[in-house]
Amino acid sequence: MKEVRIHGRGGQGGLTAARIVANAMLKDGKNAQAFPEFGPERRGAPVRSYLRIDDRPILLRTPVTAPDAVVVMDATLLERRDTVLGIKPGGLLVVNARECPKVAVSVAVRIAWVDAMGISASLFGRQIPNTAMLGAWCRVDGIVGQAAMETAIREWFPAKHAEKNVEAARRAWDSVQVADLAASATAEAAKGETAFAYLDDYPIVATAYPGEGGAGRTGSWRVTDPVVDSERCVRCGRCVTACPEGVVVLTEDGVTIDLMYCKGCGICALECPVKAIRSGEVGA
């Protein structure tokens, strides 16, 4: 049995990629099992999908913890330790990145990278990296041949989107690069909530206390950064009132935005009456 874990963000189509491969497997007479990380999906929030492939019916019904391959649809997710956690020695790590990404793994693996964002942006004008990642992953993993992969993509998408997605997969198939990655980190799971090590650490009812970052550093959800032009800013405060997250603050120096939690929705830029905020590239 082969097990794959896909890390993406809500809206990037990780489950779609898994399901397209699963459909290709079915045609090939194999059994496949594709499933999401169950729970509410928030656009931009980290989310996993899983795929299992086997010649026999698949009975195991738990998340993949020791993947043969990890597909990372968004390189910023490599900052999270759980992204590469459990990957098997000699396994495959496929990352959406222009250059070979820097990542510490506890076992030697093969790493592949492809500029799925670039491919997606040029073909769709938006960042939907899943079919490009699918192309790169199928090529280096060898689970599905190019023709079968393209058939599965064509059958998945409505006719008007099919060829562009096939093209995205094809470009990635042609441009993916592979290297060996040596082990450089100790295998250790991220520390859990030490506050709840024992049953008597719990209150009798679920009691949650106000705290920032309940959903983590949500700044990592951004696909664009808000860029403030302090010269232009007239200190009207409309961005402050309109920010859903409450991370825009008006100070004497102008507007500051807490990028640790700003989800990059872009409302502040659109609402600014003097165009003093614009949506720029992440991290630029």
């Binding site: 719990y202 009812v205 679920a206």
Partner: peptide, 25 residues
């Protein structure tokens, strides 16, 4: 539970790891 001086949220969503702990209690 509903002290405005010490606000908290009661009976909200919890993950599978935590859910069974409350059932055990």
């Amino acid at each position: 539970w509903l002290d405005v001086e010490h606000p908290k949220t009661i009976n909200g969503v919890v993950s599978p790891e935590h859910y069974i702990q409350f059932r055990a209690l």
